[in-house]
Amino acid sequence: MTSASNVPFFPPIKTRTHEVCGAGAYLFAFALAARCGGPVLWIREAWDKQQINPVGFAGFVNPSEVRVCITETQLDTLAIAEESLRSKAVSLVVMALNKPIGLTEGRRLQLAAQAGESTGLAIIPDGMGSNAAQTRWRCSPIFDADQRSQDSTLQSWELIKNKSGTLGAWHVLWDAASHRIVMVSPSGK
């Protein structure tokens, strides 16, 4: 294993908004919440029945630090995210989006994150994304037949968009003891 400081680009740049997609997006969000520290606002639309369970994320972040906001529309989600990012009251705003957002909306989120010195993370469907996002990650669980198969946090993280220009892919897992993401070698290497 390698220490979390060797996982390039994680955590993503503070004061910016990032995107994540894939079946492992929630693990990415909770690992980011752990790294950001402090209060987290999780925003989702009412129609989305996928909920976060405090028992499931307690190993990452204290459930008392997470507030869930349920909105009626994506426009409401974006408005609440923007105000929350700007407010300096939270360290991380996670928003579940199901439709693309325009450059204007994405830029507003970036400016709000910068003004509030907080981080934004949009959980998006695969293939969707905003040109304004600083980074975009694709996270997928890895089902490994070796000794790590008992660890449900083993994932492949791909940095598929980065305004800094560098992309890459890493096998990572959550190390509960150190409360960090660590890089691991792919099975058989």
Rank of each mutant, 00 (worst) to 15 (best):
A34P: 12
V55M: 15
W47Q: 14
G59C: 05
P54C: 06
R35G: 02
C36D: 06
R44H: 14
Q51V: 14
F60P: 09
E65M: 15
I80W: 00
A29P: 12
T77N: 08
R35D: 14
V40W: 11
S84Y: 02
K49D: 15
V61N: 07
L27D: 02
L32E: 04
L27P: 01
Y26M: 11
I43H: 03
N53H: 13
D76H: 09
L41I: 14
Q74W: 05
E65Y: 15
D76Y: 02
N62K: 12
F57R: 01
V55C: 11
F30G: 00
A25T: 01
A34V: 06
C21L: 01
A34I: 09
P63G: 04
R67S: 14
A81C: 12
L75N: 12
T71H: 02
T71A: 08
G56F: 07
S64A: 15
I52D: 03
N53L: 06
T71V: 14
V55K: 10
S84L: 05
E82A: 05
R44T: 11
P54R: 04
E72N: 07
A34H: 08
C36F: 05
E65H: 15
R44S: 10
L32F: 06
L78R: 07
V66P: 10
T73L: 07
L27K: 05
V40N: 09
C21Q: 10
V61D: 04
P54G: 08
A79T: 14
L75A: 15
I70M: 09
P39S: 13
L32Y: 05
P63W: 03
C21R: 05
L75G: 15
E45C: 03
Y26P: 08
A58E: 13
